[in-house]
């Protein structure tokens, strides 16, 4: 589904990604861990199409297409979803309106019929249950004045609405309390299908007890320095990152 090959990228004068290669197949869950500032969010943002980075070498192929050549909105319409580490506020625009615009835009791009506000509310009712959110949230402005945890939950709600093929969750677990973590993880698991894939960026093995990864990668200084199965996360939790980086 996703094939990243020798990806190099810069922001300003700074080289952040220094040769990342990663293959994600349908049905898989990949966890990416690594120290602060190692480039995890950068990788996620580049996959999603953030204009602030320059890819200097390498390629990213998504479902056989050159992902880097597609504008961000086309990537989203093609099923790439990023749950932001820092979700953005849009004052004055209700969640309900925003979600419906996004949903209809993605539907339209895929040749499907758009939903009117009433039909969409029906759909939302089910999705809200999935992440145990109150309907009142729909009528508040997108992320404006939301608590840290509410913002993260709101990201997963959008994922539930858009049902992406490739979801990247950038530290969605940070800032969630124990119960919220379980709810969010439960939501993500409920959305798993053999034909979609998930990349989870996290600092904590805890999340991986709920969303069990097929692969764990350690990203450090802009490179993947180690890959393994889910037991790698446990080892990292116990021993920290130094040993991986030394070995690399």
């Amino acid at each position: 589904m996703l094939k990243i090959d020798n990806l190099h990228a810069t922001a300003g004068d700074k080289e952040i990604l220094k040769g990342i290669s990663l293959t994600v197949n349908a049905g898989e869950v990949h966890a990416i861990m690594g120290p602060n500032g190692s480039g995890k969010s950068t990788l996620a943002q580049i996959i999603a199409g953030h204009p602030g980075y320059v890819v200097t070498a390498g390629s990213v192929t998504y479902e056989g297409k050159d992902l880097l050549a597609m504008p961000a909105e086309e990537r989203a319409q093609a099923g790439v979803f990023l749950a932001f580490q820092y979700p953005v506020e849009i004052p004055g625009v209700t969640n309900a309106y925003f979600f419906r615009s996004a949903y209809n835009e993605v539907r339209k791009a895929n040749g499907k019929e758009e939903l009117d506000p009433i039909e969409f509310l029906d759909l939302m009712e089910k999705k809200l249950k999935l992440v145990e959110m109150d309907e009142a949230m729909l009528h508040r402005s997108v992320n404006a004045g939301f608590s840290g945890g509410e913002k993260k939950r709101n990201e997963i709600l959008q994922m539930a609405v858009l049902e992406p093929k490739l979801a990247i969750l950038d530290e969605t677990d940070s800032g969630l309390d124990i119960d919220a973590l379980r709810v969010v993880a439960g939501g993500v698991n409920a959305l798993r299908r053999p034909d979609n894939a998930t990349i989870v960026v996290t600092h904590y093995q805890r999340l991986l007890n709920y969303i069990v990864p097929d692969f764990v990668h350690v990203l450090a200084h802009g490179r993947i320095v180690k890959s393994g199965g889910k037991e790698l996360a446990l080892e990292l939790e116990a021993r920290g990152y130094d040993w991986v980086m030394e070995a690399a």
């Binding site: 999603a48 199409g49 953030h50 204009p51 504008p71 961000a72 909105e73 990537r75 989203a76 319409q77 979803f81 990023l82 932001f84 979700p87 953005v88 506020e89 849009i90 925003f98 615009s101 996004a102 835009e105 993605v106 791009a109 959008q158 858009l162």
Partner: peptide, 11 residues
């Protein structure tokens, strides 16, 4: 803000 919207499929 614009990128966030684009990431959700909006032009």
């Amino acid at each position: 803000q614009i990128f966030y919207c684009k990431q959700r499929g909006l032009s």
